[in-house]
Nucleic acid binder design. Structure first.
Length: 487
RNA sequence: GGUCCCAUCGUCUAGCGGUCUAGGACGUCGCCCUUUCACGGCGAAAACACGGGUUCGAGUCCCGUUGGGAUCACCA
């Protein structure tokens, strides 16, 4: 209750003026706007998740806009990878996806309206002149801020090439009430006359986002911290157009385990790699991402439904967080244990290259397999013995278990097993325990060589389960293979 | 370097001036369960970066230091 009051107080304090109504009063519209120059990386996935969650929480809309303004670097493959990744994570978007390149004429139109209003100007400076200014600034050890001689010139200069720059205010300051970062103030003198429309007539990112967000009715801009600085420039355009300002929420970036920027070595792979190479479940990745930079008391395992009900911007942390694969893996283990056996079998079967008929066995074995795996890779590995063909390959440690003594024990076991009437878990357990007892040894002494003979490994599900799963014929054959002492 | 932002166990976080001898989770270590390995259960070690204020009282508010991050294009 206390929280609510504070939050409300904060909102009313931030209601600036009537021409720019509090965006939170409008139905919520969020968006994810990736540039298709690569895969959907983990940071982008979290940004998408936060936007999705926020809109769902408020019963609003979540839009997807592909920022393909950089034609040279945008690829069809990248777009597909992004859409695929979002679908995998269950982040569905409202309506069809938008492509920024479709709106170029609209962007240019706005640039010219800004020009007409005297809020922007044609800048005829050449690359050389720009470079010269930059040099001079460097020489005098002063920060570079463009100072165009064309700022106050309204007349067109024939057909010389030009860019359209925003005539950014030079006095005063701009304040952004960021829902994550808090109140951030920047002196307007720090904001330069950035380019809106390039000399080839194409819009820059800065112009395009603002126009698209406005046209799409975006009320809440939730994105990476790296855009905070841009927000101040974008506000310049918004104010010049007299458009309502969206609520901003700049989420801190994700770092690698070493605190440095997330690199390829860490987690900067696409989410598809989390699925295919790491063998993770989408609900685990999603749960992990949610908890990275956001918290809800002591809750760790959070379902989609709970996430929607609980997600808010107030509890998004302000500092960057490190990516912890161990925790992700642990979480994945939790979700594997929780997952449906048939589903897991479907996921693992391709990794094993088994037929549908054999998949039945996989499903049967799943209850014993899944507590032993944190990833689908481990799950597949743990299931491998079920489908191995004789003669088995042996791990070194497993081979070492098969001593002469052990082999005689195997023979004794084989003897008893052959005579077994019912091949089920209970009967098997009774027999094996009997063998151990008769030989006056502990169960482990017979179980381990048996495990080695049956699986080629030193670790596996419980030995009675292994026997039951493998079946009479296969089990007996595998044991028989190891009964004779080897020279 | 300029500007902006950040700072609780190794990591992710809880904490909204007293209930903090700082809670949870991962990881680590120990014990239990046990035919192996897991799962599960129990327990331990482990943090308020530092220095000044403000206050009866500060992890919580303010300032500074240090450390970290972001950004400075006709890229997005």
């Amino acid at each position: 209750m206390q929280h609510e009051e504070k939050r409300n107080a904060r909102h009313s304090a931030s209601e600036r003026n009537l021409s720019s109504p509090d965006p939170s009063a409008r139905p919520v519209v969020t968006r994810f706007a990736p540039s298709p120059t690569g895969y959907l990386h983990i940071g982008g996935a979290r940004t998408a998740l936060f936007n999705w969650l926020f809109s769902k929480h408020h019963g609003g809309k979540f839009l997807l806009r592909i920022e393909d303004t950089d034609r040279a670097r945008s690829t069809k493959e990248a777009i597909d990878a992004i859409l695929d990744g979002m679908r995998w994570l269950g982040l569905d978007w409202d309506g069809h996806e938008y492509y920024q390149s479709q709106f170029w004429s609209r962007h240019a139109e706005i640039a010219h309206r800004l020009l007409d209003r005297g809020a922007a100007y044609r800048c005829y400076m050449t690359q050389e002149e720009l470079a010269e200014q930059r040099e001079a600034a460097k020489r005098n050890r002063r920060p570079f801020r463009i100072s165009s001689p064309w700022r106050e010139v309204a007349e067109e200069q024939g057909d010389r090439p030009f860019v359209i720059r925003l005539k950014a205010p030079r006095e005063g300051e701009t304040v952004i009430d960021d829902r994550v970062q808090g109140r951030v103030t920047v002196q307007n003198a720090e904001i330069d006359d950035f380019v809106l429309l390039r000399s080839d007539g194409t819009p820059t990112y800065m112009l395009a986002v603002v126009v698209d967000d406005h046209d799409m009715g975006v009320t809440h801009v939730i994105r990476g911290d790296d855009h905070l600085n841009n927000a101040f420039r974008q506000i310049g355009i918004i104010r010049a157009m007299g458009w309502p300002e969206p609520t901003y929420a700049h989420v801190p970036l994700i770092h690698g385990p070493d605190g440095a920027k997330l690199s390829k070595r860490h987690g900067a792979m696409g989410v598809d790699a989390y699925r295919d190479e790491l063998g993770l479940l989408p609900e685990a990745v999603s749960n992990y991402l949610l908890r990275l930079g956001w918290g809800h008391g002591d809750d760790e395992i959070i379902s989609r439904e709970q996430a929607i009900a609980w997600f808010d911007l107030d509890h998004v942390g302000k500092s960057p967080s490190r990516f912890d694969f161990k925790k992700l893996e642990n979480l994945n283990g939790h979700y594997i244990r929780e997952a449906d056996d048939q589903r897991l079998a479907d996921l693992v079967a391709p990794r094993l290259g088994i037929t549908d008929r054999k998949k039945m066995l996989l499903v049967q074995a799943m209850p014993e397999l899944k507590p032993r795996a944190n990833t689908l890779l481990q799950l597949a590995d743990g299931a491998r013995f079920l489908f191995a063909t004789r003669p088995l390959d042996f791990e070194e440690a497993a081979a070492a278990l098969l001593t002469t003594e052990a082999r005689t024990l195997l023979a004794a076991t084989h003897n008893k097993l052959v005579a077994l009437a019912k091949w089920d878990r209970e009967s098997l357990e009774a027999v094996i325990r009997e063998v151990a007892e008769n030989s006056g040894i502990k169960l482990g002494k017979v179980a381990q060589p048996l495990r080695a003979a049956l699986t080629g490994r030193t670790t596996s599900p419980g030995i009675f389960d292994v026997l039951a799963l493998l079946g009479r014929e296969e089990s007996l054959a595998r044991i028989a293979d190891q009964m004779e002492p080897k020279e």
